[in-house]
């Protein structure tokens, strides 16, 4: 296990802090929401870092799809710049962890999209910016999850197998499929040698497990098969996964995740949607990163926080542009923004 050295991350920290300073702030989102047209927003963005990509798509006619792609390629460029500033020793691992994370998210989005019959265009719209856009586009065109699994098996990302497909067909619940992706993700983290990255992936593993267990209890599925051994909860997992939701929550109370889990369940009970449950857990990971970044600014956490913030910014700008295109009023736009 190697520790991250402060001096090695000093440069990356400088780069990321500067970039953070250039992120769009609340007041500017306000103004952008009030602009009258897409052209105004683009003219504004030309004065920012997005200039490089926006320049290529403007002209006498502007196609929204081109602008969306420009935003995505901007994110990729910034991401690559950040990764190249990370010290060589950790670069490959860091890159792998982030990219695998994006990939898993996207696969889940595609799965859910196919399950709800959204159609490939809509699915592609909701995808996270990532480097596998071609692959995801192809997968999104599957008519059903069977075709999806087949296509996936033909690639190097055969995380989901026929077994999980069968279970899905039996229960109609996406859990087996998504869990297979999660299992693969956690396994890919087993060989990490950098302590700080490992700490982060441990927290993530815990979150995935808690989420899975709660989900199983809600849908009344036995959780045993879906728990992934690892993270910081390791041995406690056997105990936690017993009983019903109440038992799970009280077992979690003995760990540091008690508060978060209860809050998440409260949110879930209000909306009845698993997405809010996920959202709550995700925000807790961000909280962990924020605290860690304050204790140890010269490390991985500040960088991960920024990448997240940049993703959100790209998403927001995308929302604003698309809304302007369809003439949606400012108040509604502000509601959708993250």
């Amino acid at each position: 296990m190697k520790k991250t050295k402060d001096s090695a991350y000093a440069y990356a920290y400088g780069v990321v802090s500067s970039m953070t300073g250039k992120l769009v702030d609340e007041k500017t989102y306000d103004e952008l929401a009030r602009f009258r047209s897409v052209e105004e927003v683009l003219a504004f963005m030309e004065g920012t870092d997005y200039e490089h990509e926006i320049k290529k798509v403007v002209g006498k006619t502007i196609r929204i799809k081109d602008v969306e792609n420009a935003l995505k390629s901007h994110f990729i460029r910034v991401y690559e710049e950040i990764v190249s500033s990370i010290p060589d020793t950790d670069r490959a691992e860091f890159n792998k962890v982030i990219l695998e994370g994006f990939r898993s998210e996207n696969l889940k989005v595609v799965i859910r999209g196919i399950h709800s019959g959204l159609g490939s265009e809509k699915i592609i719209e909701t995808l996270e910016t990532s480097m596998d856009s071609k692959l995801m586009a192809e997968l999104a065109e599957s008519k059903d999850l069977e075709e999806f699994t087949e296509k996936l098996e033909g690639t190097e990302y055969h995380y989901v197998t026929k077994e999980e497909l069968e279970k899905y067909k039996e229960t109609g619940d996406l859990l087996p499929l998504e869990n297979a992706i999660d299992k693969h993700l956690v396994n890919s983290w087993s060989k990490i040698s950098c302590i700080e990255i490992k700490e982060f992936t441990d927290i993530r593993t815990d979150m995935i497990n808690i989420m899975t267990i709660l989900r199983c209890k809600i849908s009344d599925i036995p959780a045993k098969d879906y728990v992934i051994y690892g993270g910081t909860l390791k041995e406690h997992l056997k105990e936690i996964e017993k009983g019903d939701v109440k038992d799970v929550l009280s077992s979690l109370d003995k760990t540091s995740y008690g508060g978060v889990a209860r809050e998440a369940m409260n949110e879930y009970e209000k909306t009845g949607s698993l997405v809010t449950l996920e959202g709550k857990m995700e925000s807790d990971v961000m909280k962990y990163l924020k605290e860690n970044a304050m204790l140890k600014p010269l490390g991985i956490s500040s960088i991960m926080l920024f990448i997240n913030a940049k993703r959100r910014e790209v998403k927001n700008l995308n929302t604003i542009i698309v809304c302007k295109h369809y003439d949606i009023p400012a108040e509604e736009i502000k509601e959708i923004l993250m």
Partner: peptide, 8 residues
């Protein structure tokens, strides 16, 4: 804005 974009 439209003109600006084209000009730029």
């Amino acid at each position: 804005s439209k003109l600006l974009l084209r000009l730029r």
